[in-house]
Design a protein around this nucleic acid. Structure first.
Lengths: 209, 209
DNA sequence: AAAGTAATAGTACGACCGTTCGTATAGTTA
DNA sequence: TAACTATACGAACGGTCGTACTATTACTTT
């Protein structure tokens, strides 16, 4: 069901509205702080009506993760994939990630940073889902680096460099939110990325921008 | 009161037992997941008796942060401060931090990583307390780097290098807990630190170990 | 031993949690 | 029009939350 010749039916509209709000709440207060009662009140609908869409709190949380993953893909991955594989794409992933965090696509900064820490030391379906997303992301970043290496643009261990780049992203995200600073942390991250890439580019290659 | 010729009186013993458990719980489930009822049950004491020690949930959380700060100081800062200021101390801070995380001094990994993310995007006394600890730590790390620069052992911008080192610590901590891996993430961090420091040591200096 | 105080326990509260149930309304299909 | 399904609602459930009070211990001091 769900769709009638392309148009959304009522139920699916509600579902989308719920998830649009859910990801924002969870990015600030976590997937635990995301309560059904609060969500319903903020959206002006009934708790039971909302609940019926998901069947359980956990299913709401998993749906929220899927929704956040789409937003993440739209804001970070897809734009960077318009750039050819290689150093340019590595650079694009970095800038889009920092822009995604800095522009507060989610009000609490990176959704996955927030909830990954929340569920890192627990077990269950939510933990597993977040683990999968993390693998996906790190694998994608590593592949992007590897392509640049294969192009002869970088000389580096892909896994190692991907780890370091991702570390800069995450550190900037946390510092920025915690200190509510205008962008100093992002500038540190950008500088770190720039000099780290510069130190590994091959002789005949120059950095973008 | 609290002490009688050096020995602890009953109440303070309880307080310490509570906080010892509190920091462990909070490192896994956060300062919000740290509930008074659960804490009392696990310790085999009454909820009201426990509550009387702190007077409010927030005061329990703030006390927990102070307790965790002492443990952090004992495990990371103080050992590193036995090394003379300079590159050696920067190296010591790095290794002790990674050991502190890897050895699970707190079962959920670094206490402050966990709860800083939890309260990063909120306001209130808990947020402020965590902000202060973060400033303290980053300032301390930056000063350690600056000392190495002043010694002529490193050529670097202290704030920039401190940011990058801290980024490696945090990234290793999260990856390790999330993936429950044996130590691969810590090895990536150690390698990152090693090569980052190597790239900035002055000609006449060599890295420890 | 008596008095006084610090520490713990017991009980109860209002609020909110996730969840279930029965029901009313709207939209689609026959 | 009639039957059916999707969607949303209100009320209530048992439970847990933080907190407030009042008792009851245990220990110290006199």
């Amino acid at each position: 069901m769900e769709k009638v010749d392309g148009r959304l039916v009522r139920g699916d509209q509600t579902r989308r509205a719920v998830l649009r709000r859910s990801v924002d709440i969870a990015s600030v207060d976590g997937l635990e702080g995301l309560s059904i009662g609060r969500l319903a009140t903020e959206l002006g609908i009934s708790k039971s009506g909302l609940f019926a869409h998901f069947g359980s709190k956990e299913e709401l949380q998993l749906s929220t993760i899927r929704a956040a993953r789409r937003i993440y893909a739209d804001n970070v991955v897809l734009p960077a994939f318009e750039v050819e594989p290689g150093l340019g794409r590595v650079w694009a992933l970095s800038t889009h990630w920092l822009d995604y965090s800095q522009s507060r696509v989610f009000p609490g900064g990176c959704f996955f940073q927030k909830v990954s820490h929340e569920y890192a030391a627990r077990t269950g379906a939510v933990h597993e889902a977040l683990l999968t997303v993390h693998w996906e992301w790190m694998g994608l970043l590593e592949e992007a680096v590897q392509a640049a290496v294969d192009n002869g643009e970088l000389e580096a261990d892909a896994k190692q460099l991907a780890f370091e780049l991702n570390a800069y992203y995450e550190a900037a995200n946390l510092a920025s939110i915690l200190h509510d600073d205008g962008g100093a942390a992002y500038e540190l991250a950008r500088q770190a990325i720039r000099s780290r890439l510069e130190s590994t580019v091959t002789a005949e290659t120059t950095l973008p921008r």
